[in-house]
Deep mutational scan, measured.
Amino acid sequence: QTQEFDNEEEARKAEKELRKENRRVTVTQENGRWRVTWD
């Protein structure tokens, strides 16, 4: 699953929550947008 964010702060917040659920999370930056991908 993927979700896009406008800034790193929001993306990192989402990453932190997903990691609490023991998910594999990848955060990438593309064209000024932050993308959080998880399984």
Rank of each mutant, 00 (worst) to 15 (best):
Q1D: 10
Q1P: 06
Q1W: 14
Q1M: 13
T2I: 12
T2G: 06
T2M: 14
T2Q: 09
T2A: 08
T2N: 06
T2R: 06
T2E: 08
T2L: 09
Q3W: 15
Q3L: 15
Q3R: 13
Q3V: 12
Q3M: 15
Q3Y: 12
Q3K: 12
Q3H: 14
E4L: 15
E4H: 09
E4M: 15
E4P: 02
E4A: 05
E4G: 03
F5K: 00
F5N: 01
F5T: 01
F5W: 03
F5M: 02
F5D: 00
F5P: 00
D6N: 07
D6A: 09
D6S: 07
D6T: 07
D6F: 07
D6R: 05
N7A: 04
N7M: 04
N7C: 09
E8D: 02
E8I: 03
E8A: 03
E8R: 02
E8G: 02
E8T: 01
E9A: 14
E9F: 10
E9P: 07
E9M: 09
E9T: 08
E9I: 10
E9D: 11
E9L: 11
E9Y: 11
E9H: 09
E9V: 09
E10T: 05
E10D: 15
E10F: 04
E10S: 09
E10H: 05
E10Q: 10
E10G: 05
E10A: 10
A11M: 02
A11T: 01
A11W: 02
A11R: 00
A11P: 00
A11I: 01
R12P: 00
R12L: 08
R12E: 03
R12S: 03
R12I: 05
K13M: 12
A14I: 11
A14P: 00
A14N: 03
A14Q: 07
A14S: 08
A14M: 14
A14T: 08
E15W: 05
E15P: 00
E15M: 08
E15D: 02
E15G: 04
K16Y: 12
K16P: 01
K16G: 10
K16I: 13
K16N: 13
K16A: 14
K16V: 12
K16Q: 13
K16E: 12
K16D: 10
E17D: 09
E17I: 11
E17V: 09
E17K: 09
E17W: 07
L18Y: 06
L18I: 05
L18M: 08
L18E: 02
L18W: 06
L18H: 08
R19N: 08
R19S: 10
R19W: 11
K20V: 08
K20M: 12
K20Q: 12
K20H: 11
K20E: 12
E21K: 11
E21A: 13
E21D: 11
E21S: 12
E21I: 13
E21Y: 09
N22K: 10
N22M: 07
N22H: 13
N22I: 04
N22T: 05
R23L: 14
R23Q: 10
R23H: 15
R23G: 08
R23I: 15
R23T: 11
R24M: 13
R24T: 14
R24V: 14
R24E: 12
V25D: 00
V25M: 02
V25E: 00
V25W: 01
V25A: 04
T26A: 08
T26W: 08
T26D: 05
T26M: 09
T26C: 07
T26L: 07
T26G: 03
T26V: 13
T26S: 09
T26K: 08
V27K: 01
V27M: 03
V27S: 02
V27I: 09
V27H: 01
V27N: 00
T28G: 03
T28W: 11
T28H: 07
T28D: 04
Q29Y: 15
Q29F: 15
Q29N: 13
Q29T: 07
Q29K: 10
Q29M: 13
Q29D: 04
E30F: 08
E30D: 07
E30L: 10
E30H: 11
E30T: 09
E30Y: 07
E30N: 06
E30K: 06
E30M: 12
E30A: 10
N31A: 06
N31L: 06
N31W: 03
N31Y: 04
N31I: 02
N31M: 04
N31F: 05
N31R: 04
N31S: 09
N31Q: 06
N31E: 10
G32Q: 04
G32S: 03
G32K: 03
G32P: 01
G32R: 02
R33F: 08
R33N: 07
R33I: 11
R33G: 04
W34P: 00
W34N: 00
W34D: 00
W34K: 00
W34T: 01
W34E: 01
R35V: 15
R35T: 14
R35S: 08
R35Y: 15
R35M: 11
R35H: 11
R35A: 06
V36F: 01
V36P: 05
V36L: 06
V36Q: 01
V36S: 01
V36N: 01
V36T: 01
T37C: 13
T37D: 14
T37Y: 12
T37R: 10
T37E: 15
T37P: 01
W38E: 13
W38P: 05
W38Q: 06
D39T: 09
D39A: 05
D39Q: 10
D39W: 14
D39M: 06
